[in-house]
């Protein structure tokens, strides 16, 4: 994009700055729109599985429901509890929301179409997603209330536990792709399976990792069946109990932006990102723009997220911890051994 601005006769330094700001807006604004629509889709899918109608009043097919909810929340009064720690109480939702947007900087939407093409892209995503826990802990503590605090404790333990196994799973992908750069990881998947399929997920060694990553991403975003942080029968509404108005809306938006990010990571890391699924030009696959493929894959994974939310009952907390530490962690460690051994045999010998 910088070149376009330079060709319009702009100073290169200014062109870079303007292009970066334009890129940020180009990602953040459609993302917010996507979050609004994905909340609607989530409610519709959930309703369809429960044999209900779901939102169908505001706008055609209820499409504008999320905007009506947003407007309602926007017009509400922001209530800050007297015992709350004012500054941190207000900073917490801002952290959650900002962090949810920051990680999108390194997501490749098409070949080379990425805001920050840094060579530690995957580590950047790990670093940013490890910040997400602060919004939750701070909101729970700053509310100065029992249930939000319990919820914050649960959430942080849960997020840290699953970050460990996610880290090990990602090492498997990095070993195969030989790079931390997101764009390179997608490119490494082209013609991965015998030159036919464009995805790591079809590799027999990597498929178990793909499944584990999908489950871990459910846990990392605290979606059902791992939504113990919001278990309404035990914790009222979890860490956001004391929040109202825009502060609550920021949590809400951040949560769904994180869900979308995790769907995108599933698509990019294991299922070929912006590449078409097959490397064979049966129909002109490669003429379809890359972002169409990526968005299709994101929507597919989001459907899985909603489907799981609608059908799977909530885990018990000890089961959640057991799954993270006693099952995913040893298996992903074992898989690192297997993958590096396989690569030493086939690639580096």
């Amino acid at each position: 994009m910088t070149e376009t601005f330079i060709s319009w006769g702009m100073d290169p330094n200014w062109a870079w700055g303007v292009a970066t700001v334009a890129g940020i807006l180009l990602i953040a604004l459609p993302l917010m729109l996507a979050v609004a629509m994905i909340i609607y889709a989530d409610r519709k899918i959930w309703a369809a599985i429960a044999l209900r109608r779901g939102p169908n009043v505001v706008g055609p097919f209820g499409l504008l429901q999320s905007f009506a909810d947003g407007l309602k929340v926007f017009l509400q009064e922001t209530i800050i509890p007297t015992g709350a720690n004012r500054g941190l109480f207000l900073i917490a939702p801002i952290i959650t929301f900002t962090v949810a947007l920051m990680a999108w900087a390194v997501i490749p939407f098409n070949s080379g179409a990425v805001l920050a093409d840094i060579n530690v892209g995957l580590l950047y995503i790990l670093a940013i997603s490890s910040l997400g826990v602060y919004g939750v802990i701070l909101s729970g503590w700053a509310s100065n209330s029992k249930y939000p605090f319990f919820s914050a404790m649960r959430a942080s333990a849960q997020m840290i536990s699953y970050e460990v196994s996610i880290g090990f799973i990602l090492i498997g992908v990095v070993l195969f792709a030989d790079s931390f750069n997101m764009n390179e990881i997608v490119k490494a998947q082209q013609g991965h399976g015998l030159g036919i399929v464009n995805a790591f997920g079809f590799n027999l060694l990597l498929f178990p990792l793909a499944v584990m990553f999908l489950i871990s991403s459910l846990a990392e975003t605290a979606r059902a069946p791992f939504d113990l942080t919001e278990a309404e029968s035990e914790l009222v509404a979890g860490y956001q109990t004391e929040y109202s108005s825009m502060a609550f809306a920021l949590f809400w938006l951040g949560e769904y932006a994180n869900v979308l990010l995790m769907c995108t990571l599933n698509a990019v890391l294991f299922w070929g990102g912006w590449l078409p699924p097959l490397n064979v030009d049966l129909i002109p696959w490669f003429d379809i723009p890359g972002w169409v493929w990526l968005f299709g894959k994101i929507l597919f994974f989001f459907f899985i997220f909603s489907w799981v939310k609608a059908t799977v009952p909530r885990y018990r907390y000890d089961q959640l911890m057991r799954l993270g530490w006693k099952i995913f962690l040893p298996i992903s460690l074992l898989w690192i051994f297997l993958i590096s051994g396989w690569l030493m045999l086939t690639r580096y010998s």
Binding site: V120, L123, L126, A127, S130, L131, V133, I137, M153
Partner: peptide, 24 residues
């Protein structure tokens, strides 16, 4: 850049969370 990312992952993502836990 590698050290920078590790600093954020290890210290901000893990060590400081532990501090925060204990202090809270």
């Amino acid at each position: 850049e590698f050290i920078a990312m590790l600093l954020v992952i290890v210290y901000v993502g893990a060590v400081a969370v532990l501090f925060l836990f204990v202090v809270m």
